[in-house]
Structures are given as C-alpha cells and as structure tokens.
Design a protein around this nucleic acid. Structure first.
Lengths: 137, 137
DNA sequence: TCAAACTATACTAAATTTATAGAATTTATA
DNA sequence: TATAAATTCTATAAATTTAGTATAGTTTGA
C-alpha cells in the first residue's frame, strides 16, 4: 500500500499537471484543490523539489510548478522517492538492495528468485503509469 | 515491502513443503530450520492454521504440516492473510476495498484507474508464484 | 501422571507514519 | 525600504503499526 505521503505527492503532481502552462501554484491552492493537509504538503513539495520533479519560486507570488514533463514522471519514481523499494524484500531490490537480516544464504534462498520476478513485473507496470497517463483518463 | 511476518510465514511454508510426506514439524524445528524467532513463529503458524494453509496436531509428538497442496498456495494468498491488500490504495482493492479518507469523488479520481491496472498486473504475477514454484528453483 | 507440544491472550518496546508548530528566509511591489 | 506573501527549515508530538516477549492454559501420548 502507498503511504499517505506518496498518495498526496501523486495528487499534488496531478494538480500541477492540470494547470495552465506557466501557471505557478501556491501551496494553499494545491492543498485545497487536492484535499491535502497544508503543512504536510509543504514537506512533500520540498521533497518533490529535491527530487527535481517540481520547481519553485520563493517570495510573494511564488509557488510550485512541474519541472519534469508529465510524461516522464512515473508511479515508480514517486513510489521510490517516498516509500522506497518497489521490491517486496530488500534483497530483491534494484535501488534499495540490502541483505535480509535473517538471511542464511542468499544464493540458496527459495524466496528471492520469485520476488525478483515480481519486482520486474511490478516495476514494468509502475513505469507504465505516468502523471500524463493518469490525467488523460 | 513484505512485513517480517509475511516473510516468516512464507519461509515456514517453504520449510514444511520440503519435508517428507506425512512428516509433522514441531515449531522449534521450523524456527531453527528457517531462522525465525520461535515465539513469533507460534503466532504465525496459528494464523496460517486459521487460514487453512496448515494443519496441526496437538500434544506430545504434535506439530504442523501443510494442509493445502503447495501448488495451490500463492504469494497473493499469504500477502493478503498477513499484509492485507495487494492494491496500492484501499479504493483500488478487491478484497480490502475502502473509500480513501481524503476522497472527494471516486469516479473522478485520476489515480484510482491507474492503481486498478497496477493491482491487476501485480495480482496476476503474485498468483503465479506458489510455494511449489519457489521450492523448485 | 508427566512431559512435550500446541493455543490463547496480553503486554511492551521500538520504529514509522502523519501530521503540526514556529521561526527564518526570500521576493515583489507600494 | 517597509511590508506582505510566500517558500524553507527544524523540531516536536500523537497515533499507529510492527516485531517480538511473557505467561498461562490445554491437549495428547506414553
């Protein structure tokens, strides 16, 4: 399941994607438009900024706008930024690899191979969902 | 990601699937054989029993054994028993449907349709992984 | 009757999640 | 240059979940 943070991030990106080109959205505007707690959203937008998904303009008449093309922001990207690994166990992860704490022998682990398969399929599916594809529906 | 509980459940099932037909495994045997904390495993085995995946024999010389065929225990089943929904949001779930707390209009939600697609694909993949298929590798 | 095993329930500590609070900084413009 | 409006930063707190432990009870075979 997605955390609220990831869900809110996606909703915020969807909001931004639906604004006119060159429009800058204030946090309060996004929060109200997408039903997200404002102070929580502030943190999320900063994380999205650090991830180079959105840009910001400070000061009066400032706000946020999409930095990447909406066709190039995938569900997998946002999941990884906020919820981390796509894989079901760290030992099956590409970007967040870690040995399992209770692992005896990774090469002999009966679980790992199956979970790598799942990760490959899930990742492919999640990379197929973009902010643009969501907006279109 | 899977919780430790789900991972331990899968490891316990894999252990049971690799024993001789008619063999009954004590908790301590499974715990040591699969590197799972014994008291934690007790709870997990009871849950697996309530889910009709394993059977048990009480008293001296008692223990646990697979109840379902290992070909018919899927990753999706075990995930649902311990970690709940396969879907990324409750509103996109088949077995654990719930309206999102912050939902304004489900029919107009841009996220939901994409997440239903993901759930369909992930579920298919997870139903393809069985205890039997994992043991074979 | 005893030992060995499962069963049941309660409890606890740590980590994570979901926020909120408040102060600092930046910027446009009157 | 003062002010208002906005982002930015850091700390904190409440609630929930996770992971695991403790204890007592019940069942069974020898």
């Amino acid at each position: 399941m997605l955390s609220h943070k990831t869900k809110y991030a996606l909703k915020a990106l969807l909001y931004l994607a639906q604004q006119d080109e060159n429009h800058i959205s204030r946090t309060i505007e996004i929060a109200e438009g997408a039903s997200i707690p404002k102070k929580f959203l502030e943190q999320i937008l900063l994380d999205l900024k650090r991830g180079h998904f959105v840009g910001s303009k400070q000061g009066k008449y400032g706000g946020y706008y999409l930095l990447k093309d909406k066709e190039n922001i995938t569900l997998a990207d946002i999941h990884r930024l906020f919820d981390g690994a796509i894989a079901l166990l760290p030992c099956a992860s590409l970007n967040f690899y870690e040995r399992c704490s209770d692992c005896v022998s990774e090469s002999e682990c009966a679980l790992r191979h199956g979970l790598i398969t799942i990760r490959e399929e899930t990742l492919k599916a999640m990379q197929g969902i973009t902010i643009a594809s969501l907006v279109k529906k």
